[in-house]
Design a protein around this nucleic acid. Sequence first.
DNA 1: TTTAGCACTCTTTTAAGTCGAGTGCTAACC
DNA 2: GGTTAGCACTCGACTTAAAAGAGTGCTAAA
Lengths: 355, 355
Amino acid sequence: MEYDISKRKAQILRAVVEAYVKGGEPVGSKYIAQNMMPNCSPATIRNEMAELEVLGYLEQPHTSAGRVPSELGYRFYVDCLAGEYKKTKAETEVMAERLRGKQHELDKILAEASRLAGSMTNYTAIAVKPRTDMSKIIRFEVMYFDSRNLVLVMLSGSGNAKTRNLRLSFDVLPTDAAHLASTLNMYIAGHTLDEITLPLMMQAEAEMGSEARLLSAAMKEIYSGMEEQSGGEIKVDGVDRLLSYPEFSDVGKLRGLLGAIESKDGILDTISNIDGDELSVVIGRENMSDSMSDSTLVVKKIKKDGKVVGAIGIIGPCRMDYANVMATVDALAESVGKMINSELRMLEGPKKGKE
Amino acid sequence: MEYDISKRKAQILRAVVEAYVKGGEPVGSKYIAQNMMPNCSPATIRNEMAELEVLGYLEQPHTSAGRVPSELGYRFYVDCLAGEYKKTKAETEVMAERLRGKQHELDKILAEASRLAGSMTNYTAIAVKPRTDMSKIIRFEVMYFDSRNLVLVMLSGSGNAKTRNLRLSFDVLPTDAAHLASTLNMYIAGHTLDEITLPLMMQAEAEMGSEARLLSAAMKEIYSGMEEQSGGEIKVDGVDRLLSYPEFSDVGKLRGLLGAIESKDGILDTISNIDGDELSVVIGRENMSDSMSDSTLVVKKIKKDGKVVGAIGIIGPCRMDYANVMATVDALAESVGKMINSELRMLEGPKKGKE
DNA sequence: TTTAGCACTCTTTTAAGTCGAGTGCTAACC
DNA sequence: GGTTAGCACTCGACTTAAAAGAGTGCTAAA
């Protein structure tokens, strides 16, 4: 965290990063001297840049080209930025406003927020929804649709509900549905998959009496419902935007990144490896996945009641407009956080209005 | 449908398509004469090809390059193929097998089938799930989670269920949940959004008595649930595979296509414009969306009980291995169809075993 | 410590020239 | 008439050479 660098070096480094991010081409001493640091001569800048290079903050694509920030250079830049990337209050308000409306389901809010982040920054956005736990169902409900179709509703301990259609090959009555529900609640609810033993099943079957076949049809769906992990998903928005950056005009690089985005594992890994709750920036090879080693990921987790319920982020080339991206992701994540937590407050009525 | 073309022309056209699909480079008369039609001289082929060009089946990137099929050329080829692209029974069986296991939810089956299609053909796969209709809710259920959290289950006329979490700012009892459910079923169920008038609401509120606030909390969720069209979704798999085809090494073309895939509207339009239920191949500009005018879409709808419940398909460049893609998509769609319809049969037990 | 000057390096651009694949056409052939 | 051989011609792809330009590193002076 402690970078041992003279003030002027830092200033030059910063200038290089910003110029390079903006222009996309290696930046030379002359440019810096003229545009960003008018009180230094090119030669001075050159000397400093040469030193920054041996320190590892800058790189030279080849002799007689300008300098380009190394990953370390970006890292330094980002760390310096840490304090000052916030959006203004007004901007934040605008974003929050655009998020309103859709404030119903968490998935939707996350997706919308990430989409917004993508379009505001012109990079690819991701929304992460963590796995929801269905390993223990605490309550069942059975709805009667018609004599051959029931709907099975399963409620997990964490409050997630999942529904399954039960299509039968025999006729049942509404009372059978109710009977099934009460049987399930009595014998199956509250158990994990492992705990549902044969004796338990037999008891349940006995309870169902003549409608045991209804139970077995239901159990089949329950098994599959409990086994499958819904969630752990990433929604991606705006892959096409990647193509507007020259670093991805090389099909090879693009392909790797696209693959990584699609497989999702690497990204999930990276995100789950992030410690704090703060905005985090993963630059180049800091990423777990090799195919993302030319890209940067900016993410922020979103918490509800102290628990991580998702994350939104931006993926782009290392040469990225960090200030803007960081400010946007941070503000949006913040907004989402407030929004999903304020549902409480809103309903609770006036209460230490914190705003 | 009636192409007025000599047998030999058709043969040459076919040869050109196949050679071009395989090699990716304009194919010349000599190549055809040597490899595909040994009993003709290059000159003859040349003459024929020149005629095929004025007829619009072939194109020439520039003088002194070989010929390339035009869209019409591909169309002809595909139409000719109509009969003979089927997979063998054994292959079909293998695919069906790989689909088994996941046979629970339609979404999953579709997604899995399309993923399989993509990996078998090395193109980008899509799975389409049509809009599910929630405009009229025929039945409500309310599950009691804890004193401040309920789960609201809504069942539409078409049998789709949707759940919403109801987070309250006041405490309720399990009996309140039941009461809410019966009130909703009495006053709200069976109506569309428009039909829920103020008087109706007031009646319902009166019915709820002191727990009217519970009703209003629920109504908020119901409104949002009914308004939102879930579904109409496209799941895409394997965009990165597009990059392995030289036609998309041009970033511009790729960008358009990626955009189209992402916005999804164009694709949905195209698909919903397809008339029959058969496998259909939409080549180049036959697509609705401009940005897909260099791509081909191969889709097949999937029906259940005579109703379209989804579709799977493949997107790739016009220069596509049509025979393989068509066979794969067709067979997979077929398998999925059988699978979701056989759930019935399986449960019904032995019955005119059709296989 | 900073700066001006200058030779040097290395990419990018431009131009010219060559190569080769494939065509279209004409004339001979069956 | 349909088919084939031969040949001139076209046009992109590739190669090579040269010129241009940008930026550096180093030296020496301020």
